[in-house]
Amino acid sequence: MIWDWDWTLEILPGLLTQGLLVTLQATLGGAVLAFVLGLFVALLRRSRRPYISRPVGAISEFIRGTPLLVQLFVLYYVMPDFGVRMTALTTGIIGLGVHYASYTSEVYRAGIDGVPKGQWEAAIALNLPRRWTWIGVILPQAVRRSLPALGNYLVAIFKESPQLSVITVVDVIGLARELGSERFRYLEPMTVAGLFFLLIAIPASILIRRMERRLDT
């Protein structure tokens, strides 16, 4: 099998503009949702009211313990029976966001636990209200500590986003498969799509590692 450059150049723009665009939308949408939702889950799990912390914890563990694929299926094929209708991409973003929120909530939990006890004590000594202790003192430090791990999950979400093709989202991998099936030839489209992932994931990982080192000091 010889690499077909003409065909490669022909499919490249489509893969870039349609496929990669969808992939990035899914990734960024899913990540933003995961980062925001995860923070709320982390906070709710710390609630002193057990009727809040327990169920949130249980749901979060359940989501973490089941495959993303299953969750996507349920969202896309079962939810409409309950009258919830969304586009495939929106469903996919919600699926990714909810699934990864169960991971990012653990990241935030570690970040919150990592804030030195002295910070809480200084806040108490200053009679700072609890709410402002969280908003002004604890969360800014906890989130900062969480950034490298969150960055890693951003890359993970990016790499897992092709799973959205099971609910008919045509991302860069999905498009590559469609293009391949037209000619029964997958080498070029899949290689190009794979390269896109490498070209984005590797620099992102390096950036995150550098950020990690900067935050350490």
Binding site: G118, Q119, E121, A122, A125, L128, P140, R144
Partner: peptide
């Protein structure tokens, strides 16, 4: 309200500048 404390390890808030460290509690509390 009547009591203040200074700690061995300072425990300043590292995410705020000096001015904000001092004003945060009077403003919020």
């Amino acid at each position: 309200k009547k009591i203040g404390m200074v700690f061995q390890q300072f425990n300043l808030f590292p995410n705020m500048n000096v001015l904000r460290n001092i004003t945060e509690a009077p403003v919020r509390a």
